[in-house]
Computed example of a mutant assay.
Amino acid sequence: MTDKLKLEIAIKKAGLTKREVSKRLGLSEMGFYQKINNITEFKASEIDALVNMLAIKDIKKIFFAKIVD
Rank of each mutant, 00 (worst) to 15 (best):
M1D: 12
M1R: 13
M1E: 12
D3N: 15
D3L: 05
L5P: 07
L7R: 11
L7W: 09
E8W: 11
E8M: 14
I9D: 10
I9A: 04
I9S: 11
A10E: 12
A10R: 12
A10C: 13
A10Q: 14
K12I: 13
K12P: 12
K13D: 09
K13P: 13
A14D: 09
G15C: 08
G15L: 04
G15D: 04
G15V: 03
L16Q: 05
L16E: 08
L16T: 03
T17W: 09
T17N: 05
T17F: 08
K18P: 10
K18F: 04
K18H: 13
K18W: 07
K18S: 14
K18T: 10
R19V: 11
R19T: 15
R19W: 11
E20D: 13
V21C: 05
S22N: 08
S22P: 09
S22C: 11
K23L: 14
K23S: 12
K23N: 14
R24P: 03
R24L: 11
R24Y: 06
R24K: 15
L25I: 06
G26W: 14
L27I: 03
L27A: 05
S28I: 06
S28C: 08
E29Y: 15
M30K: 10
M30C: 08
M30I: 11
G31H: 09
F32P: 05
F32H: 06
F32C: 08
F32K: 08
F32L: 08
F32E: 06
F32N: 07
Q34F: 13
K35A: 06
I36F: 10
I36H: 09
I36G: 06
I36K: 06
N37F: 07
N38T: 05
I39S: 07
I39W: 04
T40V: 05
T40N: 10
E41A: 03
F42M: 00
F42K: 02
F42E: 00
K43S: 02
K43W: 00
K43Q: 00
A44N: 00
A44G: 00
A44M: 00
A44L: 00
E46R: 01
E46L: 00
E46T: 03
E46F: 01
I47C: 00
I47H: 00
A49E: 03
A49C: 02
A49L: 02
L50A: 01
L50N: 06
L50P: 04
N52R: 15
N52H: 14
N52Q: 13
M53Q: 07
M53I: 09
M53A: 06
L54Y: 10
A55D: 14
A55W: 14
A55F: 15
A55H: 15
I56G: 03
I56Q: 03
K57P: 11
K57Q: 14
D58G: 12
K60W: 06
K60M: 02
K60Q: 10
K60C: 02
K61P: 03
K61S: 06
I62E: 02
I62C: 01
I62H: 01
F63H: 02
F63Q: 00
F63L: 01
F63R: 01
F63N: 01
F64W: 04
A65L: 01
A65G: 01
K66D: 12
K66M: 04
I67G: 03
I67W: 11
I67P: 03
V68S: 07
V68W: 05
V68Q: 06
V68D: 05
D69G: 12
D69M: 10
D69W: 09
